[in-house]
């Protein structure tokens, strides 16, 4: 599905990514761990075209994404959420979810049906006529997730989906992510500091440290990796 090969990204003299390689197979969840400043969000920004990588390659289903603008990468099926939700604040929830359909040929009825379906799944259908700016931070996370999923992406990039979310909403988000590979048919790149959730949801985990891959493996391997313990988990 997604293959990142020897990716580097520098900002002036700062090397944010120093040759990162990773692979996410179809319908799999890859957890991405790392300290603040380890390059996790930079990697996501490179994948969906917000940043232009300095070198390396990013391939989605065998086709390079390099040089494509963000909207074309989205059209190829890459969805994204942000640590601080980036909604359209002065638009209603229904309009927020209709935004991915402004290009394409889905009928109005289909757009409504899919938007309503996802607002139901995130339990916010009753607020569909509210402006996004009127929602709490946790609710905004859910709407952003729904807006991404309504477009039926092949790959989703989730940046700290549990940050600032109360436990009941976090549980709902966990259920939604759990369903993504099988029910929704997409692969997931999950960035989070919530280790328990990452261990629970991920088929495989990559740990970044200072822009490089420090370790890769299953939850048990990562938990017991001495380099990870020293650099990230603490003694």
């Amino acid at each position: 599905m997604l293959r990142v090969t020897d990716l580097t990204k520098t900002f002036g003299g700062l090397k944010a990514l120093g040759g990162v390689s990773l692979h996410i197979p179809e319908k799999r969840v890859l957890g991405l761990l790392g300290m603040n400043g380890s390059g996790k969000t930079t990697l996501l920004n490179c994948i969906n075209g917000l940043y232009e990588p300095s070198s390396g390659d990013i391939q989605l289903q065998g086709t390079s994404l390099l040089g494509l603008p963000t909207h074309k990468i989205a059209a190829r099926g890459v969805g994204r959420t942000f640590q601080v939700p980036k909604l359209f604040p002065r638009m209603t929830l229904l309009e927020n979810l209709a935004a991915p359909f402004t290009t394409g040929d889905a009928s109005d009825a289909e757009v409504y049906e899919r938007s309503a379906e996802w607002l139901n799944r995130v339990e916010l259908y009753r607020l569909r006529h509210n402006y996004a700016e009127e929602l709490s931070g946790g609710q905004q996370k859910l709407v952003e997730l729904a807006r991404m999923m309504v477009a039926q992406p092949k790959l989703v990039l989730l940046d700290e989906p549990f940050a600032g979310v109360n436990p009941s909403l976090a549980l709902l988000i966990i259920r939604l992510i759990e369903a993504m590979p099988e029910r929704d048919g997409c692969s997931v790149l999950l960035v989070s500091h919530d280790l328990t959730s990452v261990y629970q949801l991920s088929h495989n985990i990559v740990v970044l440290h200072e822009g490089r891959v420090l370790a890769e493996g299953g939850a048990a391997e990562i938990r017991s990796n001495p380099d990870v313990i020293e650099a990230y988990l603490g003694a």
Partner: peptide
């Protein structure tokens, strides 16, 4: 809808597939 999305957040609009 696309125009108002771009007005509110151009990056987010591009993320959902709008040619800003």
């Amino acid at each position: 809808v696309a125009l108002r999305a771009v007005r509110d957040d151009a990056d987010a609009a591009a993320i959902v597939g709008i040619d800003v």
